[in-house]
Amino acid sequence: MAKTRNDYENSWWPRFVRWLKNGSSALDDAMYGDLEEEAVLPDAPAGDAEKREAQWDERRRLLLRDEQDMYSQVHAWSRSKGAKLAQWFYRVTAVVICLGIIWMLLQTAAYLPPFGNPDNPANNEVSRRYIEQGMQETGAVNIVAGMILDYRAFDTLGESNVLFIAACSVLILLRISSEKHGGDAVAQLEAEADDRMYEPKNDLILQRIASFLVPLILLFGVYIIMNGHISPGGGFSGGAVMGAGLILYLNAFGFRKTERFFTFKTFKVVSLCALSFYAVSKAYSFFTGANHLSSFISPGTPGRLFSAGLIPYLNIAVGLVVCCTMYAFYTLFRKGDM
């Protein structure tokens, strides 16, 4: 009976349970075997109690040393080879998972309707309506512009707001406040080596070319925005072009000259005005349209510059927001401030 119990305690399951409970060590395992050991040791006469005690102490000391050796070995392994192995394992798993995802996506793409086929389910009555009635209902020759700024105008308002909110978040994260300087901000400014240190700029080639190009780029941006309902283009692309023009000007002439006409305040005022104009005018047009009231907005003659109801004005609003935001992103990511 006793023998069965001892066997059970030495088998792998109770050892595993002990390990789970309180992290068994080699020493603990040895202690569990004590009952048996007593029988194995040669039956010493009663006077040899001290000798036996010394033997046991020796045994414990050896076991402890072995255990510590083992632990230090494991630690060293996990820091050097183990870390490498884990990294390798992670990389292989990542590649396998990615290949699996690509394979699944390719399978899905293989089941999609054929490319460029006019009978695909995506080309349904919604796009038919936009194409066949769009010009009469919105007055815009560019059907996409009519769609995003008339049928789905609130969508575009949300889009401009996303851009504006992103600019605000970047501002919060990156702007080095000059008013409330805690010591932190000042230290940061000194550490960052402000780009304003390199001013006034006197790169002659860049300045000559910029003085020729910047007006052209801004003009082209205005053209894209104003013709958004007639030709390809619109507020987003035109605003990005105008923002690029401003960035070129900043690079050529430096912060001090740019700040004569574009400061943080300009950004705030222009974005706020453009977004509120957009929201208010679109709310008006939705209100009158939904309640069958007469409104002063008319589609006009399609193809004219000032036609298509609100679309050119909304394009201007969107273009201003995008232009300001692009410029703000650039100045904030540069060393230096807006």
Binding site: A122, E132, M135, I143
Partner: peptide, 29 residues
């Protein structure tokens, strides 16, 4: 491209304008 040319307004002349609008939204976001 879905830009009305010469007053042609049949479904058979232009591609689907909706994905273009969606891509525009996606780029901005």
């Amino acid at each position: 491209a879905p830009i009305v040319v010469d007053g042609v307004q049949s479904m058979e002349a232009y591609i689907n304008p909706i994905p273009a609008g969606l891509v525009l939204t996606g780029i901005v976001v």
